[in-house]
């Protein structure tokens, strides 16, 4: 009769119950929705530039302006740039890396508040949204990186000594750490903004402030005489990543200990982010 009872676990595809696990990362499901991820990235990119004159050129204009401003004010006027590297390249490398991290954080932090309409109607793994935002920010990062390389080539042609070292191979690792750091922070904030809207305002401001606690404006070596400040800078997981970015392009020793710390921080923040994100994704439709 009931040889195979339908309530046998494997008989059901989806079981919806109130008490889910406190932590969940369903990679199989995410994989099934990979086409959605790709489409969201495309949507992001095309929708962003439709009806703009410069289109993707904006990716270049913004860091260039910032670079020249920084080079002028902090490099020339304040004399904060280190000797040995052209200050334009010094600032551009820092800004490009920082832009990627900051972009991922600010954009993914709007995961819930920016997609209310969609998310209160249809189910899909919510994590697809911040992941797609990270990926589309990565495209912008790619363009900015290419700009940096073009500028480097210009300097090399004009006689700057440069030889690509094996450190170049560390670049993908740096990108991965930044992406994880940004994504983790972003989803953590996005989970909290569904309840406390004030956080939404804090994000942009906070990320900007955090930049001043990173070696974007001057190298960490400048802080040798200020041990307390140095500690603060070293607490920022983006600090070793930016230092390492410069090592990748301009040579030196990779700060392995710092990178290990950054990786650890990225993992912890991402895990924390996942936990909160998952909690909110279950109750989100009831709050808004």
């Amino acid at each position: 009769m009931h040889a195979a009872r339908p309530s046998d676990l494997e008989e059901w595809d989806v079981i919806i119950r109130p008490d889910g696990p406190w932590w969940r990362l369903d990679l199989k499901e995410l994989w099934h929705y990979r086409d959605l991820l790709v489409l969201l990235v495309k949507r992001d990119i095309t929708a962003q530039y439709k009806q703009t004159l410069l289109g993707p050129l904006w990716h270049v204009v913004q860091p260039l302006t910032t670079t020249f401003t920084f080079a002028l004010i902090f490099g020339k006027a304040a004399g904060l740039a280190p000797p040995g590297i052209p200050s334009v390249l010094f600032y551009m490398s820092g800004i490009v890396a920082w832009n990627f991290f900051a972009g991922v954080v600010t954009r993914t932090s709007k995961t819930f508040t920016g997609n209310t309409q969609l998310m209160s109607k249809v189910y899909f793994p919510r994590l697809v949204v911040p992941m797609s935002m990270t990926a589309s920010t990565l495209v912008g990062y790619g363009i900015q990186l290419a700009t940096l390389i073009v500028f480097m080539l210009i300097y090399v042609l004009r006689g700057m000594p440069w030889q690509p070292g094996p450190e170049l191979a560390a670049l993908p690792l740096l990108v991965l750490i930044m992406a994880l750091l940004g994504l983790g922070t972003g989803i953590l904030v996005s989970a909290m903004t569904t309840k406390y809207r004030d956080l939404g305002f804090l994000v942009g401001f906070g990320v900007q402030l955090l930049m001043y606690a990173s070696p974007v404006i001057f190298p960490l070596s400048r802080l040798q005489n200020y041990p307390v400040l140095l500690r603060v800078f070293e607490l920022n997981p983006m600090t070793p990543v930016i230092e390492a970015t410069r090592v990748v392009f301009f040579g030196g020793a990779l700060p392995w200990a710092g990178l290990a710390y950054a990786t650890g921080a990225a993992l912890v923040i991402s895990l924390l982010g996942l936990v909160f994100f998952h909690r909110v994704e279950r109750s989100f439709a009831d709050i808004v």
């Binding site: 919806i16 119950r17 279950r282």
Partner: peptide, 29 residues
């Protein structure tokens, strides 16, 4: 699965699609 129950359980076999407000998720651009 837009929201979760407070109690009880739903079991589903097979792919389920809902036409809750069709056109949700259209990007105007």
């Amino acid at each position: 699965r837009v929201t979760t129950p407070t109690g009880g359980v739903i079991r589903v076999k097979g792919r389920m699609a809902s036409l809750l407000e069709v056109g949700t998720g259209f990007n105007p651009e």
